[in-house]
Amino acid sequence: MPTIITPDICDTYPEVTVLNPIFANYGGIEAFYGPIRTIKCFEDNSLVKQAVAEPGDGAVLVVDAGGSHRCAMLGDMLAEQAVKNGWAGVLMYGCVRDVDILAELELGVQAIGHHPRKSEKRGEGQRDGEVTFAGATLVPGQWLYADNNGVLIATNELKLPV
């Protein structure tokens, strides 16, 4: 994966959408990108578990967890599964846990916070639809670019600045 620097991408592609700066890096890969796949769920990570068990093919899993700060929607076991199945990263509009282990994994992970409590598993939520948070609507098939400077959304894959 080429090195990405989101300020350079913004300079080259001013039309990209920049998400509100509410996310922090938790993964072992601080800069990541790929096509978006989405999940919308609230305090139930059943669909996250299902998704990371499938081939990721370099995609970024975007999870609209409603911005909840009451439980974690991704931890070490699911993140390890995502690495094993070829996901480039996870953008979590919610919390993660096992942050020391996440920081060691070859996976990009950005979230709005961390929480030690696991989520429930009720099998609720939706996959592959549009989600809206952080001032933007994200749609499967768009491309996400993330690093310590921020998170960007493009309608298609960008030729990255060198």
Rank of each mutant, 00 (worst) to 15 (best):
D100E: 15
M92C: 13
R97A: 00
A82G: 13
A88F: 04
C95Y: 04
C95G: 10
V99D: 07
G94Q: 06
V90P: 07
K84E: 14
D100Q: 10
M92R: 03
R97G: 02
G108Y: 00
W87D: 04
I112R: 08
V96A: 05
G89V: 07
Q110D: 06
M92G: 04
L91V: 11
K84S: 13
I112Y: 08
L105T: 09
I101W: 04
G86L: 12
W87Y: 11
K84T: 15
Q110M: 15
V109T: 12
L102M: 00
V96E: 05
A88K: 10
C95W: 04
D100N: 11
G75R: 08
V99A: 07
G75D: 01
A111W: 09
G86N: 13
L91K: 03
W87L: 01
G94N: 10
A82V: 09
Q110G: 04
D100T: 13
K84H: 14
E106W: 02
E80Q: 15
D100L: 11
A103Q: 04
G108M: 03
A79T: 06
V109I: 15
I112P: 11
R97M: 08
A103V: 00
E106H: 12
A79F: 07
A111C: 11
I101E: 15
E80C: 12
G89S: 12
L102I: 01
G94Y: 00
A111D: 06
L78V: 14
M92N: 00
K84D: 14
G94P: 09
G75K: 05
V96W: 02
G75P: 08
V99C: 07
N85G: 05
G113A: 14
G94A: 13
L91W: 04
K84Q: 15
A79I: 06
Q81P: 00
D98W: 09
K84R: 15
G113Q: 13
E104S: 15
V90A: 08
A79M: 02
G86I: 12
Q81I: 02
E104Q: 15
I101S: 13
D76M: 10
A111R: 06
M77Q: 14
W87T: 06
V109S: 03
A82P: 13
G94H: 06
W87M: 05
D98E: 07
G89I: 01
G75L: 08
D76V: 04
A82M: 11
L105S: 06
I112T: 14
Q81E: 15
Q110A: 13
N85S: 09
L105R: 01
H114Q: 14
Q110S: 12
D98R: 05
H114A: 13
A103M: 04
Q110L: 14
E106S: 14
V96N: 06
V90G: 08
G75W: 10
L91I: 12
G113T: 13
G108H: 05
G94L: 10
A82I: 10
G94I: 08
V83T: 07
R97Y: 01
V99H: 07
E80P: 02
M92Y: 03
A103G: 05
L105E: 10
A79P: 03
C95M: 05
L107Q: 09
V83K: 04
I112A: 02
A103C: 00
A111G: 10
M92H: 03
L105I: 05
V109M: 00
L102F: 10
I101G: 05
D76K: 11
E104N: 12
